[in-house]
């Protein structure tokens, strides 16, 4: 299984011969991919096919059984700090603390990644959390938690976005705004790798797909 997604540009992130095994089951093997600036990639497949595992391996959170992930032709295990400065990963869990307010959560998350924190109020307003800045996150809904996490997208300089189910609990208008954000990011030379089960409107134009199939053995 091998796919090359675009050849005209130097790859931002690439993977060679990835094999992932979970609970004695091979999720995928010999998976190679190259992702360049401007790519929007949707990883699709049924539940349990290994979408999240692939994303976690690309982000460097999990180790593949075999193979290696490269950031600009450098193995990510050898350039951790540089890679993480250029990566924005949002997992299943939004990473929002119930004991802190929306604004404190966003400020901490930005500062943790070494980013400016002077525009946090505008960012929260842009994700429709105007008026909720000082509410404790435990009083907010699941969709609003997700929005706090996604507000980081507005402020980051990282070109590589890896997003695991970013649309979970987000309303229709929010999904449209996010899709536009992804398009703008790709135009500006970034890349987006995401998983979702929703049909996206930008699919036809820009989106490339990686399909994982469920394997029994």
């Amino acid at each position: 299984m091998s796919l090359i997604l675009s050849e005209q540009l130097a790859p931002l992130i690439s993977a060679k011969q990835l094999t992932c095994i979970r609970e004695d089951r091979i999720l995928f093997e010999q998976l190679s991919l190259t992702i360049c600036a401007g790519d929007i990639i949707q990883v699709e497949g049924p539940n349990g096919a290994g979408k999240t595992s692939l994303l976690r391996i690309l982000a460097g959170l999990s180790q593949p059984f075999e193979g290696e992930v490269y950031f600009q032709d450098q193995a990510i295990t050898h350039c951790r700090e540089l890679f993480h400065q250029n990566l924005l990963y949002l997992g299943h869990l939004p990473g929002v603390k119930g004991e802190m307010s929306a604004i404190e959560n966003l400020t901490f998350n930005l500062a943790l990644h070494g980013l400016e924190t002077d525009q946090v109020e505008d960012d929260l307003a842009q994700v429709n959390l105007l008026g909720f800045e000082d509410s404790l996150a435990s009083h907010l809904s699941a969709g609003q938690h997700r929005r706090i996490a996604l507000a980081r997208l507005l402020n980051t300089k990282a070109p590589i976005w890896i997003l695991d189910e970013p649309f979970t609990a987000i309303d229709k208008q929010g999904v449209q705004n996010l899709e536009q954000l992804f398009l703008d990011h790709a135009e500006q030379g970034g890349c987006v790798i995401l998983t979702t089960h929703q049909d996206l409107t930008l699919a036809a134009k820009r989106m490339k797909k990686i399909s994982l199939t469920y394997r029994l053995y």
Partner: peptide
């Protein structure tokens, strides 16, 4: 670990 902030810490550029 339960709310995902640990992942974000491991992915931060700080040591």
């Amino acid at each position: 670990h339960a709310d995902g902030s640990l992942e974000q810490m491991l992915l931060s550029p700080h040591p």
